[in-house]
Design a binder for these strands. Sequence first.
DNA 1: ATTGCATATGCGCTAAAGCGCATATGCGCA
DNA 2: TGCGCATATGCGCTTTAGCGCATATGCAAT
Lengths: 97, 97
Amino acid sequence: MDIPRILVALAEPTRLAAMQIIWDGGEHCVCELMDRLNTSQSRMSRHMKALRDAGLVLDRRDAQWVRYRRNPDLPRSVECIIDAVIVAAAANQKVAA
Amino acid sequence: MDIPRILVALAEPTRLAAMQIIWDGGEHCVCELMDRLNTSQSRMSRHMKALRDAGLVLDRRDAQWVRYRRNPDLPRSVECIIDAVIVAAAANQKVAA
DNA sequence: ATTGCATATGCGCTAAAGCGCATATGCGCA
DNA sequence: TGCGCATATGCGCTTTAGCGCATATGCAAT
């Protein structure tokens, strides 16, 4: 559990947005994320790799797709960080809107 | 409230350690932090500037010293992030010890 | 005014992050 | 086997972060 590494992973806006999508519990392929976050394929793929390397998400091959999902085995302390970050980011988006 | 900027600020180990010291509520000069965190003067000063620029701490001139303290006006959502990060970092240090 | 301690900052350097582009790989289907 | 979609990655580039060193600034005391 490398806290700085986790924070770095969450500190990039596109990665944070991806976490917001994934954290609810579903599985999401790269192409879906890349469409919803309006970014390129290679960029999205690399960002997902960063989240995976930080231990925040898991991935699974499903035919031609790779499905990413939240890592269910994170320590509670790390889940608390992510919850707090997502809440704060969501609150911020409301203010901005 | 720029969440990514806050996360970047917290993602550096020395800055995170400084936040752990400051978050309790006291005032701490750069020389104290630099001694306790075993780092150089310029490095510590710059890291404190980063925390200040992120809005996490405030500073105050007191004679030859500059006292840093936690920013009491942070939104609750941001305080939650910092609390969670500090708890997780502390838990980690126990495991490592 | 000078000295000394505390802090900030300009400068140059190195390392790392992030990106686009092109290409490779994995998989299903015809 | 060959094609097409989804994903990953090598490469080169640009930007940014972080550092040490030296120096500037602020303040107090002599």
